[in-house]
């Protein structure tokens, strides 16, 4: 399973970024093989729609889950439309810690925040 992380540098030991849409880099770990790749977030300077562009990049990489500091309601809807599950990294500071927490099933899933979503009929 391909998992995405928000990174401050393009290295597996980089501290996790505290922003999702405007993270410096995204890192992707294949939880079966352990393979790692990182790439620069092309939306980090976007004036608007950063969350959406972030989702596009993750969709392009075939990611199945993303571990992020927080995901806004609109980005969450978009992730869900592409069957990408979002989890909060919580207190985890590195990919390794977040990956361990993910495998242990202790990461909190980001759920649709009630009626606060931006989508209305």
């Amino acid at each position: 399973m391909k998992l995405a992380f928000c990174l401050t540098r393009d290295a597996i030991d980089a501290p996790l970024d505290q922003r999702f849409g405007r993270a410096e880099f995204y890192g992707i770990v294949d939880s079966e093989t352990g393979a790692f790749e990182a790439f620069e977030n092309s939306a980090k300077h976007a004036s608007g729609g950063a969350g959406s562009k972030a989702v596009q990049q993750l969709v392009d990489k075939g990611v199945e889950a993303v571990i992020a500091p927080e995901v806004g309601p609109q980005a969450l809807d978009a992730l869900n439309a592409f069957s990408i599950t979002a989890f909060r990294q919580g207190g985890c500071t590195t990919v390794q810690k977040a990956l361990d927490a993910f495998k242990a099933g202790t990461l909190e899933k980001v759920e649709k925040p009630g009626n606060k979503g931006l989508h209305r009929a």
């Binding site: 939306a43 976007a46 608007g48 950063a50 959406s52």
Partner: peptide
Amino acid sequence: FHAIIAGPKVTLVLKEL
């Protein structure tokens, strides 16, 4: 405006953008 996200099976519109 990044209002459309293209995936291999779904093309999604984010109306608000």
